[in-house]
Design a protein around this nucleic acid. Structure first.
Lengths: 240, 240
DNA sequence: GAGTGGTCTAGACCACGTT
DNA sequence: ACGTGGTCTAGACCACTCT
């Protein structure tokens, strides 16, 4: 039961109580949990307080809410492993697993580089750049969402079609060779646009990489922000 | 102004409005934003609705709430860069920057390996293992929180003092050589214990690495979960 | 139509920090 | 004493799903 005189907020007490039920196996993966109305009645708290507890466990990845149906315990088994520190081989690795990769390119457009972007790409301010967005899907489930800038002078003939197959191969076909990439990794709550691109709900944490990718010789090819859908995939890394 | 008949919830409208103020420079880093009471009066919404908008922008890293004082716009400049895919050199890198590293070891205790842990470490179930927690601080600000398991048979004489200096060096002094580490990286909302260990508030997203560290020769040395405080530090990676 | 979660209101009391 | 954010209540209306 909950202690109304405790220093610990009621919604935190309820969170912990539900967590215990999950860890003890009383609530199993796939189970529906008591509704907000049931919880508020059973524990003599208001519905808003019960809702706050459930909301918190939802953003922590233990529960999933489905409108009109209820709230369910979800598992943390994400089947497919993808590398975080490899530039190539995404498509190939997916195919090896017998799955179908697909790239969607919602946007490919010309923009002018602002000061910050020009500095990152090693070009002049107001120089033309490509801005592109790409969603990498596996069996129609979005895995990765990329937003990327590349100097137009480097790839003057880029088309959406080139991005729908292998960007790596296209760059090579233009006589350039991708070398490596510096990345900053962080955990973020994405904005609504990114969240919907990856079919995620509001307030779900997500992996973000900000990348500078270099050509052989050290020239900057592209600046990109990459969002990873960890709801369905595991992202692996090798350290030494 | 807000549109009460819109399909977009009022708190989302207010979120976007506050974000525009931040991006336009109307609200600058360090500024206090209008209080919940002011917002609810100015936009003719209830205080709970204003609060929800502010709460969401807080977990997204744009605002910081201070009890008794108000809500402030925070910057995203995190000064110190730390590597995500390097096993050694943390202490040295910090010292190079003229900062003082310190390791706190709240827990070092014997436990029995359960089935899952035994399999990960390549030992028998119920064999003795060390369980240790370590907080790596830089100038008294927690940067990394580690929870780790090591078979006692590998390091029978381990003490808290050994962990307060360099774990890497201690392992070497025992005639073992650390080789590399497989890591799974994810974005999580930490539980209250981890959050308070890193001096973070509830519901702030955090980087998590689950690691298997190997000795030269391929034997498993340790299984660890490492939490990174991205509030104060940037975590970098190199991809090729 | 009944139940669910999503949003919203208009109050209330509290702990905290500033004045 | 006052204003702040933190919690909590007891209602309300809505859109959605299932039957």
């Amino acid at each position: 039961m909950l202690d109304k005189n405790s220093l610990i907020p009621l919604y935190v007490q309820l969170e912990n109580l539900l967590l215990e039920m999950i860890e003890s196996g009383e609530l199993k993966v796939g189970d529906i949990i008591p509704s907000e109305n049931e919880l508020s009645k059973n524990y003599s708290i208001s519905r808003m307080t019960a809702k706050k507890a459930i909301d918190n466990l939802t953003i922590k990845g233990f529960l999933e809410r489905v409108k009109g149906k209820g709230t369910f315990v979800i598992g943390k088994e994400k089947k497919i492993e993808l590398p975080l520190n490899r530039l190539r081989g995404f498509t190939q690795k997916v195919k090896e697993m017998g799955l179908i990769p697909k790239n969607i390119v919602p946007i490919l457009e010309r923009r002018k580089a602002d000061k910050k972007l020009a500095k990152l790409l090693g070009i002049d301010e107001n120089e033309d750049v490509w801005y592109m967005e790409r969603i990498r899907q596996i069996d129609d489930t979005p895995a990765v969402f990329e937003q990327s800038y590349i100097a137009i002078s480097l790839l003057p003939n880029l088309t959406r079609k080139d991005l729908m197959s292998s960007k790596f191969e296209y760059v090579r076909s233009q006589g350039l060779e991708i070398s490596d990439s510096d990345r900053e990794i962080s955990a973020e709550i994405p904005d609504d646009y990114v969240a919907s691109s990856l079919h995620l709900k509001r307030n779900e944490p997500i992996l973000l990489a900000e990348c500078i990718t270099y050509l052989k010789g050290g020239q900057v090819l592209e600046y990109s922000t990459i969002f990873y859908n960890q709801k369905k995939y595991r992202f692996k890394l090798y350290a030494d």
